[in-house]
Structure formats: structure tokens, C-alpha cells
Design a protein around this nucleic acid. Structure first.
Lengths: 111, 111
DNA sequence: ACCAAGGTACGAAAAATTTCGTACCTCAGT
DNA sequence: ACTGAGGTACGAAATTTTTCGTACCTTGGT
């Protein structure tokens, strides 16, 4: 089944402040880093990120990432797909994703 | 008089999480954006940024920027100089400063 | 029809951040 | 020696963010 895409900002409406606020959190940065590392940009289930937090909190974090324009969330009803908005991000903030790649992906030290 | 440089992290110890957290705040981002816009990297007084907040709060924000490794603070006793750590930032996070430059400098919209 | 898995809505607790009042320090100039 | 400008220390209030408990929704499988 094709799910419906939850809304986020248009490509050229991405806000740098919202992006930095989104990436300021350890868990969200972990998600983005993992997404950026996969150059094939496959859609992923949101359980594939091994986040050590409850599912309600995960819902919150994915929403923040979507509202910052960093990911698409595809709603299938009883599961959800996550996809990096790589082209939009690169267009508006070239080099940003490369910065994430430079960090060790598993390095999720406490803040 | 030569002032003494307040301590921040070494160039290769800059942490991306700390940097994103520092740049997540509107006022701190404004400071960095203004600094990044001046390619001559002159030292500036910390009153030259026109921040609409009290001086105690400014002290706080400059400290966060310094502890993230983004600026040097030079203490002259009764005044303070601010200098962008451009080379260190570019070395560790190439392209980061360019992202700030892409935003309109005076665009400090409420969050 | 039922159940279980995956996810959300709402609300509240907990934690972190931003902000500033009060008091104090340092230096330059008079 | 005094004063004023610029800055910090400490502590508390205000705000924001993170987290999760409870309840509920949706879909796929039995």
C-alpha cells in the first residue's frame, strides 16, 4: 500500500535555526547521521534506528525532524517509513550532511 | 594591554553536538553569523553585536560559544574581545560557516 | 471478530535552557 | 580616591524541551 506523506516545509523554506535546533539533540542527530550514511536513501522503518527511548518519545523526535524539513514520514497506518530529504537539504544547506558523516555514527555520548 | 585568552576546547576536540546546541539559539547564531560575515576576522568588542538581551545573559551566551569552541574570548579586565575561531572550525567542520553566511544576517525572527 | 504490533494524542513530570536581579570585580579617566 | 563603564558570579524565575503514562487508533493475521 502506498502511504500518505506527512507534511513538512517546502525545500526553499527550510530554516537554519530549526535545522540546528533539530540537530542539537543527540537522538535526532543519531537518526540523521544514520540516514546520511546510506547513500542509496532507502526508506527505513522507524524502529531501525535503535533509539534507547520510548515509542512516544520517538514519535516526538521524528516529528521535530519532519517539521525541520530534514525527513519525510510516510504513514502506512500501523507503521511508518522514514526517508532523508537529501536533495532538498543539499540544495538549501550544501555540506550539512557531510558534517554529520564526519562524526562516528555510534558515538551517542550523553550530553 | 594584552589580555588573557579564556579557555576553550582544542581544535580537534570540537564536538558537533556542542556546536549544534550552540547554534540552536537565535542570539548565538546571530553572533556567529556576524562574525562569519567579516572575512578579515578582526577582534570585536562584545557590545558590537546589538543583542537585545541583558549583559548577564550575554555573558552566558558568549560562554556557550566559547565552550563549544566557536569563539575566543580575550579578557582585558574591564572589557572583552571576541574572535571567531575560523581556521579551527573550517578544519574540523568544513562548510559550516558558509551555511551561516547563506542566511540573511539581520534575520533574527522569534523562534 | 479478535488480538497483537506499531504508532499517535494528550497531559503531566522531569530536566535543561534562557533570562535577569542583586552584588561584586576590574580598569580607565578624572 | 572616586566614579562610571564593562563584565562576572550566584541564584532564582520563566520558558522550553525531553520524557513517558494512559488511552486510543490502524492494520495484518488468525
Amino acid at each position: 500500500m502506498t502511504g500518505k506523506n506527512l507534511v513538512g516545509p517546502e525545500a526553499d523554506a527550510l530554516d537554519l535555526g530549526a535545522v540546528f535546533r533539530a540537530l542539537a539533540d543527540e537522538h535526532r542527530r543519531s537518526v540523521l547521521t544514520q540516514l546520511a550514511a546510506d547513500r542509496s536513501d532507502n526508506e527505513r522503518g522507524c524502529n531501525s534506528f535503535a533509539l534507547p527511548i520510548s515509542k512516544q518519545t520517538q514519535t516526538h523526535h521524528f516529528r521535530v525532524l519532519r517539521e525541520a524539513g530534514l525527513i519525510d514520514e510516510i504513514d502506512y497506518g500501523n507503521r511508518k517509513g522514514i526517508r532523508l530529504r537529501r536533495a532538498d537539504i543539499e540544495k538549501r544547506f550544501p555540506g550539512l550532511l557531510a558534517l554529520l558523516g564526519a562524526e562516528p555514527p555510534g558515538d551517542t555520548a550523553p550530553r
